Computed example of a mutant assay.
Amino acid sequence: MTDFKTQSAGYLANHMARLFEKGLYRRIEPLGLAPAQFMTLLVLWDQDGITQQTLRLHLDVEQATMANTLKRMERDGLITRRAHKSDKRARLVYLTDKAREMRDGALSAAKAQNKIALGSLSASERAQLVSLMQRVIGQMKTPNAS
């Protein structure tokens, strides 16, 4: 069974993701952020004022997970939710000034985590790894992959 763990892309990707998350958490926790909040902020920093459904699709998370994350972010003063002008069922998610001000510090923390995690790779290896990960993610997002 050990060979499976050392050769399984899924096992290794999951393990690597958990280690990245732990390292990221240590770096963003002083800012008052959790990894799920950081991922949500990454989307909102690029596209403020979108629906919860749009956020959920960007992040590939379940509706309940997204709802819980947004509830915590609203409680922590990172977002506000406002009614959608044309869709009475939808609410738009907006960043607060507090969340906008966290951007540089949070991105620096994430870059530091990436630098440590990928420190043993050359620049070309890092670029290749990221490219391969993007391709695998794209493949798994196709309708027949899940």
Rank of each mutant, 00 (worst) to 15 (best):
V93S: 03
N144E: 11
V130T: 13
I79Y: 02
F38H: 08
S131C: 05
R81D: 10
V93M: 00
V130P: 03
A9K: 10
E101V: 08
M16C: 08
R103V: 05
K98H: 11
A117T: 10
Q139F: 01
L92P: 07
I50A: 03
L95R: 13
K111A: 03
D104Q: 04
S86Y: 03
H84T: 05
Q7K: 15
M133W: 08
Q134T: 15
S86T: 13
R27P: 07
R100F: 00
A90F: 10
A64H: 09
T80N: 06
R18W: 02
M133N: 14
A145Q: 11
V43F: 00
S108F: 03
A83E: 09
M140I: 06
S108T: 15
V61Y: 08
D48V: 03
K5H: 10
G32E: 01
L24T: 09
K22R: 15
H58A: 12
E21D: 09
K115T: 13
T2A: 10
A117L: 14
L78Q: 07
H15G: 04
L107N: 10
A127T: 09
H84E: 01
L107S: 09
R135L: 07
Q7G: 15
G10K: 11
Q128I: 10
Y94V: 07
T69I: 00
R82D: 12
E62C: 08
F20P: 04
S8T: 09
Q128P: 08
L95A: 09
Q63W: 03
G138C: 01
R100C: 02
Q63R: 11
L95D: 14
L129G: 02
D104C: 00
K88D: 04
A109W: 00
A106Q: 04
E125S: 11
D46G: 15
I28G: 11
R82V: 10
V93R: 02
M16H: 14
D46I: 06
R135S: 06
R26N: 13
N68W: 12
K5N: 08
D87G: 01
L107K: 13
K22Q: 15
L57R: 14
K5E: 12
G77Y: 06
L59P: 12
M133D: 14
P143W: 12
L107E: 12
M133C: 14
K5V: 07
K5S: 13
T51D: 08
L55T: 01
S131D: 11
L92S: 05
L118F: 13
L92G: 12
D97L: 02
L33I: 02
M102G: 00
G77K: 02
N68Q: 14
S131A: 14
K22H: 15
A67V: 04
T69Y: 00
A109C: 00
Y11M: 02
A34I: 02
T96F: 07
L121F: 07
F4P: 12
Q63A: 04
Q47G: 08
S120L: 10
W45P: 13
L42P: 05
K88Y: 03
T65W: 06
